[in-house]
Amino acid sequence: MPLGGVGLGLMLVGGAAIAQSSVTLFGVVDAAISGFTNKSEDRYGRSATISQLVLRNSGYNTSRLGFRGTEDLGGGLAASFWLEAPITNDDGGGIATFSRRSTVSLSGGFGEVRLGRDHTPTYWTNSVFDPMGQVGVGANLLNSIGSTSPGRDFKASTNYPRASNSIGYFLPSSLGGWYGQLMYSFHENVKYDPGTVTPPGVNAAGTLNPGTVAATRAGRYVGGRFGYANGSLDVAAAYAEDTTGDNFYAGTTDTTKTANVGASYDFGVLKLFGELSHEQRVRDYAIRPIGGGTPDINLDGYLVGFTVTVGVGLIRGAYSEVRYDMHTAALPNPKSSKVALGYVHNLSKRTALYATVARISNKNGAALTINGGPAFLNNATYTPGVATGYDLGIRHAF
């Protein structure tokens, strides 16, 4: 066949494939003027203030650009892909990676099997049952506890709110309102057996090892979420274990165990939200040292919130609280509380103006900050206290 005929044939084949598929371009562009103020105090009650005024993205919805598509394979089967990239429209950046979601899946009457980078089950509970959607200055404190806790060397989770290298399974949508998700994320570390065959090096403590400290399980995530949604009611519970660090020579493995349960009920004009969350950070020892080793950390939190529809507008409010149990009698346990209030004015189905204000109160060494804001002045002299912030912005979705 002449080259022109080959090109025409490829175009026809490609056209036939497109005819059996659907591909959608979608996204959100969200920009806000945001202000932040953090106040720390010394033991004499004197304060030190850190403030910042910025134009930023993602004050109401996270800015993004994505492509998704589905091909009908027949017999009830479908193949799908989803590529979603964050964008920083305030400075023209983004779309360097599809880090928000990058999956390919096969679905049918059995449900859906999804491979790639995706939201974790425990994240969904925090997001769905937060009137602020975990975005902007109003994002609840149950989102903030993914950061490193005060007074310990536990690493923060690398699998919140998403996990890479994951296999996920979703229940089919034909179960009368019941839904569920299971996820396993590979750590993808190289395994050495025995561990002493790793290349020589110096460990974090400065001690020469026969080989470098090789992570063997850090990065692994396993979790699940199950719920029921019917009419006005939606309730779900999730549990996960995330291996955040390990040290072959020290014989330790660090794991973050998270359990949460949330619910919402829509009365029509008024919708109520609630969530309970428990997180435990555990260090397991091959041989527990004299003195018991590093104590665990427990974090308990809750959220209550609401939305009220007023004409084309939506009033949003939430209160959240987090308490740390450091398992030490030397100092009182840290705790933080947050109140957030916002209003969204919908100019159309895709465009909205919004305003949100929030205030965090930290006690006993807690240092949680407003989402997107600067860190506290936190040293031997000053202790973190109150953080406040606001967003004034516009969101357009397409």
Results as ranks from 00 to 15, higher is better:
S232L: 08
G151P: 02
K155A: 13
R101T: 14
D193Q: 13
G223N: 12
R101P: 00
V113M: 12
V128Q: 13
N159F: 03
T198Y: 04
Q181H: 15
K155M: 08
T216S: 12
A215Q: 15
D118H: 11
P131N: 09
V222E: 08
Y228E: 09
G116S: 11
R117E: 13
P150R: 02
V128S: 11
S127R: 14
T120M: 05
A96V: 07
N189E: 14
A163W: 02
S174M: 00
G138N: 10
I167M: 09
P150F: 02
V213Y: 02
S174W: 00
V113E: 07
P131D: 10
G224C: 07
I167H: 04
L115M: 15
N143L: 11
M183F: 07
S147I: 05
T97V: 03
G201M: 09
S105Q: 05
Y179P: 03
A214P: 01
K155Q: 14
Q181F: 05
A236E: 14
K191G: 04
G223W: 05
K155G: 10
S147D: 13
P210D: 07
E188I: 00
T212L: 10
S147W: 03
S147E: 12
A156W: 01
F98H: 02
G211L: 05
S107M: 02
S164E: 13
A205M: 08
N165E: 13
G231H: 12
I95M: 14
T207Y: 06
R220E: 14
T196M: 03
R217I: 00
F129R: 07
Y169E: 08
S232E: 14
T103R: 02
A139K: 04
N189H: 06
Y123E: 09
N165G: 02
F186Y: 11
D118I: 09
D234G: 06
L142V: 11
Q134K: 04
H187K: 08
T198V: 09
D234A: 14
L142W: 02
G116D: 06
N126E: 12
R101N: 10
R101C: 01
G168L: 11
L115K: 04
F170Q: 12
F110P: 06
N143C: 00
S164L: 00
F129L: 06
V113S: 05
L106H: 04
G138F: 02
T148A: 15
A237F: 10
V213R: 10
T103S: 07
S107K: 13
